[in-house]
Write a protein that binds this DNA or RNA. Structure first.
Lengths: 338, 338
DNA sequence: CAATGGCCGACAAACGATTGCAGTAAGGCT
DNA sequence: AGCCTTACTGCAATCGTTTGTCGGCCATTG
C-alpha cells in the first residue's frame, strides 16, 4: 500500500486535512477556493496520493462495491453477464466482487452474509430460484438488489431477463412452418423462472393451431443427462413427436445424443431447437438451431439498474426489463418427413 | 446492513467492547476467562452480531480480499481458474474480487490501482505479458502476488502453470508414432510465456529425431483468425507438412477450417493437435486431439500459494509450480497417408 | 499478615477519511 | 466608518474495531 495519507497531502499543501478532503471531493469542491483546490491537487499529484477506500467506506457507509452472485461461473451463460456488468460498474467507479455459489444453497447463504458484513452497496443475483430464502432475506433487509436471468416468485426486486414467451413462440412457429405437428417440450426445472416461463409459453404457443400433439416433459435440471433421460422416458411411453423444443441448449444436446443412440437422427428424423445459444452450439455438427439471448446486455442493464438505485432512484416494485431474443436457424431443424 | 455493533454485544454481555472483541477473536480468546467468552458469545448470537469488516480492515490493515485479474472472463480458460481460486479463498474467509481487463493494458493498470486503493491483501494475475509494467509495479510495491497461467520475463513472483514442455512433447511424440515427419507449429504470441514456452518445447522435441521438416509460424494472437491466417501463409509459401501442432485450441480450429476451405481435410490429409482442451473441443466433429490442462487445480494452487504468503510464509523468489498435463487422443490425428 | 505475582477486564488511543459547526477575514453596503 | 454578509478554512467528532497498557482483585507464599 501507498503510505501517503490525506494529512500528508494537507501538510504539503499547507492546509488542514478537512480542507484537503473537500478540495479533492468533486461534490464538496465548491466550498473551497479555487486557489486552495489547485494547491491541494498539486500536492496530491506530487506525493502520488491515493485515498484509502476502506477508511472512506467506514465513514460514509458506502463501499462502492457490488456483489454478483452466480451459481457456477463455468456455465457459459454467466461469463458474458459478468463481463457486461463489470464493464459498466468499473466505469462508474464501482468494483465487482464475484461469488460462485457452486449451486449450493448453504454456500449461497453464507456468501451473501459475508458480502453484507463487508458492506457491499448492492447485489446482482443470477441464482434466484422460484422459492428463494436468500432473496427473501435481501428483500427484508432492503438491500438494493437486482435479479438477472432468473427471478423468484414474489420478485419485488427489479428483474432483467429475456422475452422467453417470444423465444419459444419463434421455435414453435419455425417448426410449424416446417410441417411439424407433434412437438415435445423438454421443460427446465420448475424451481427456475426460466423453466416455468418457457413451459408456459410453449403451452400457449401450441394452443389451437392445428397441432396434433403437445407433450411437456419436466426435467429436474438443465443438463445433458436430464435431456437424455427425458427423451428416453418419452420413447418408453410411446409418445409420438417429430420435433423437440428444449428448455435450454444442454437439454437439447442431451436429447439429440439419446436419440442418436437409438438410431434416430437429427434433423433427418426429429428436429430439435435449443435455447440460449451458448458459444459452442454453432460449432456442433450439425450446428444447432437455437434462440440467442443477449447475455452481455443483460449484464449491462442489470448493472445500470442497480447503479440507478444506488444513486437514489429506487425502481418501481416489480419492474421487469425483458430483452429481445434472436432466433438462429441452423442445422438441427428440417422439413418434417412425409 | 445489520445495525448491531460490537458495543451492543458488549453491553448485552455486561462487559467492555474491548473485552468483547477479544472474546470473539480466536487468537486473543485466551486472554479472557472462559465464562466471559461464553457470555459474549451468547450475546452475539442473540443479537445476530456480524462484525463490520470495513472497520476491522481499517484497524488491522488487512481486508481479507484478494483480487483476481483476468484478460477476458468469456475466454473459457478462465472460469475454471476463477472457480478453483474462489473455492479455496472463500473457505479461508477471503473474498474474491474479479477484474476483467478486457485485454487492455490501460484498463488493467487502472483496475489494479483501484484494487490497491481498496486495500486488497494480494493479487492473482492471469494476464501477465512477457514484458508487463503492471506486474513490475506490483513487484516494486511488494504486494503479495502470484501469477497463474502466464508469467512475465523477470518473474520474481511465484508462478502456477502447467508443464508446457511435456505437453508439446506428447503432441510431437504422438504424431511421430503416427508416422508424421513434417510438422508445422503454430506458435502463440511472443509476448506470452505460454506462446514462447510451447514454441521452445516444439523446437526441442523436434531436434534430431529423424524429422524431415520443422516449421514454426508466429501467430499474433490466440484466435481462430490467426490460426487460419498462419496456415494460409504456410500454404502460400509452399511449406510442406502432414501435421500441425497448434499453440492452443483456437489456433487449431482456425487452421482446420482454413484447410477445409481448400479441400484439405483433417485428419484425412493433415493431423492437428490443439492445446488446453477447452470445453467444446470434445464436442466438435471430429473431436479434437488436444492437451488438457488442469485449470481448476491451477486456480486452487494459485490461491493456496497466495494464502500461504498472506499468512506469513513468503515464497522463494521465482518459485514455479508446474502442473502435469494430459494428452487427449481424439479424432483429429491419424496415421500419415503414404 | 504482608508482599508478590498472575489473570482479567476496562480504558483509550489508534486506523484514515468525512463533515457539521464555528470562527475568521475580507469585502460590500449604507 | 461601522456593521453585516459571504466565503473559506480549521477544529474536532465520528464511523466500528482492535490492541497496548494499566489497575484491581484474588490467591499463593514467605
Amino acid at each position: 500500500m501507498n503510505k501517503i495519507r490525506l494529512v500528508d497531502v494537507a501538510r504539503e499543501a499547507g492546509v488542514h486535512a478537512g480542507t484537503a478532503s473537500r478540495a479533492l471531493n468533486p461534490a464538496a469542491r465548491d466550498s473551497v477556493s479555487r486557489q486552495t483546490v489547485r494547491k491541494v491537487e498539486r500536492a496530491a499529484r506530487k506525493l502520488g496520493y491515493t485515498p484509502n477506500t476502506v477508511a472512506r467506506g467506514l465513514r460514509t457507509a458506502r463501499s462502492y462495491v457490488v456483489a454478483l452472485v452466480v451459481p457456477d461461473i463455468t456455465n457459459p451463460l454467466f461469463p458474458y453477464i459478468v463481463r457486461g456488468a463489470e464493464q459498466v460498474l468499473a466505469e462508474a467507479g464501482y468494483t465487482l466482487v464475484l461469488t460462485d455459489t457452486n449451486n449450493d444453497a448453504d454456500t449461497e447463504q453464507s456468501q451473501v452474509s459475508a458480502m453484507r458484513a463487508r458492506g457491499v452497496d448492492g447485489f446482482i443475483v443470477a441464482t434466484a430460484r422460484w422459492q428463494d430464502p436468500v432473496v427473501d432475506e435481501l428483500v427484508a433487509a432492503a438491500v438494493p438488489t437486482v435479479l438477472v436471468n432468473r427471478h423468484n416468485e414474489s420478485s419485488s426486486f427489479p428483474f432483467v431477463g429475456t422475452d422467453d414467451r417470444h423465444g419459444i413462440e419463434l421455435c414453435v412457429r419455425h417448426l410449424r412452418e416446417l410441417g411439424h405437428r407433434s412437438i415435445l417440450h423438454l421443460a427446465g426445472p420448475a424451481d427456475t423462472s426460466t423453466g416455468r416461463a418457457r413451459a408456459d409459453a410453449f403451452r400457449q404457443a401450441m394452443r389451437g393451431n392445428g397441432f396434433s400433439a403437445r407433450t411437456i416433459l419436466q426435467c429436474p435440471s438443465f443438463t445433458e443427462q436430464a435431456g437424455a433421460d427425458a427423451v428416453a422416458r418419452a420413447r418408453a411411453q410411446g409418445t409420438r413427436f417429430t420435433a423437440i423444443v428444449a428448455g435450454n441448449d444442454l437439454l437439447a444436446i442431451g436429447a439429440a445424443e439419446a436419440l442418436a443412440g437409438q438410431g434416430i437422427l437429427c434433423p433427418r428424423d426429429v428436429s430439435i431447437t435449443g435455447y440460449n445459444d451458448v458459444e459452442f452450439m454453432r460449432r456442433l455438427t450439425p450446428a444447432f438451431t437455437t434462440v440467442r439471448i443477449p447475455l452481455h446486455n443483460m449484464g449491462v442493464l442489470a448493472a445500470r439498474t442497480l447503479l440507478a438505485w444506488l444513486r437514489g432512484t429506487e425502481p418501481e416494485t416489480g419492474t421487469q426489463i425483458l430483452l429481445p431474443v434472436e432466433f438462429m436457424t441452423r442445422g438441427t431443424t428440417a422439413q418434417v418427413r412425409t
